[in-house]
């Protein structure tokens, strides 16, 4: 059984010929498109390491079947920086030491980008913590993650005001 799926990944169009309907978006990214920045921590939507933006929404890529997302737009960690310049969330993660081993970091960053875009958290640390609680970090870098999200959100807000 062959499936022909159109996806836009990090701005680039992809035509994916799938011989297997079981392929998840996560495994497609990692094993077929070789975009390995998105990580697999649990493969059942419990850890958030595979968070990508799917049509702009935070999504656990391990729970998304490619076959169900024909025509979708996918943004992964590899597509966040532009022209060699880090996205403000990426820069803030480094500045606030919001990572240790780095394995959950792509998911944390994509989740933070999604959270900021959703606009619900404002500058309330408690709401940021809640909004980031779908992304586990076993190293315990949470304090830095919260600081980084608040910092980046402030920068992005000021940037959009200036524009």
């Amino acid at each position: 059984m062959g499936l022909s799926i159109a996806l836009t990944v990090n701005g680039a169009p992809h035509r994916v010929e799938l011989e297997d309907p079981r392929v998840t978006l996560l495994d497609l990214l990692r094993e077929r498109l070789h975009l390995t920045g998105t990580k697999k921590g649990c493969d059942r939507g419990q850890c958030g390491a595979c968070t990508v933006l799917l049509d702009g929404r935070r999504t656990n890529a391990c729970l998304a079947l490619v076959a169900a997302h024909d025509g979708a737009d996918v943004l992964t960690i590899e597509g966040l920086a532009s022209g060699g310049e880090l996205h403000p969330v990426q820069a803030a993660f480094i500045a606030h030491d919001a990572l240790q081993c780095g394995f959950c970091t792509p998911g944390q960053i994509m989740s933070a980008v999604g959270l900021i875009a959703e606009g619900h958290a404002g500058n309330d640390p408690e709401r940021v913590r809640e909004g980031m609680s779908g992304n586990l970090c076993r190293c315990g870098a949470y304090a830095g993650i919260t600081e980084a999200v608040l910092d980046a959100q402030g920068r992005l807000a000021r940037g959009s005001e200036a524009a």
């Binding site: 990692r30 390995t36 920045g37 960690i77 820069a91 993660f93 480094i94 030491d97």
Partner: peptide
């Protein structure tokens, strides 16, 4: 100092074992 491996880790470029193919 900030992490010297930070730029690799925030861009998805840091290569962990299972990222090899």
């Amino acid at each position: 100092l900030t992490r010297r491996d930070g730029p690799l880790k925030v861009t998805g470029e840091a290569r962990y074992a299972a990222d090899n193919h």
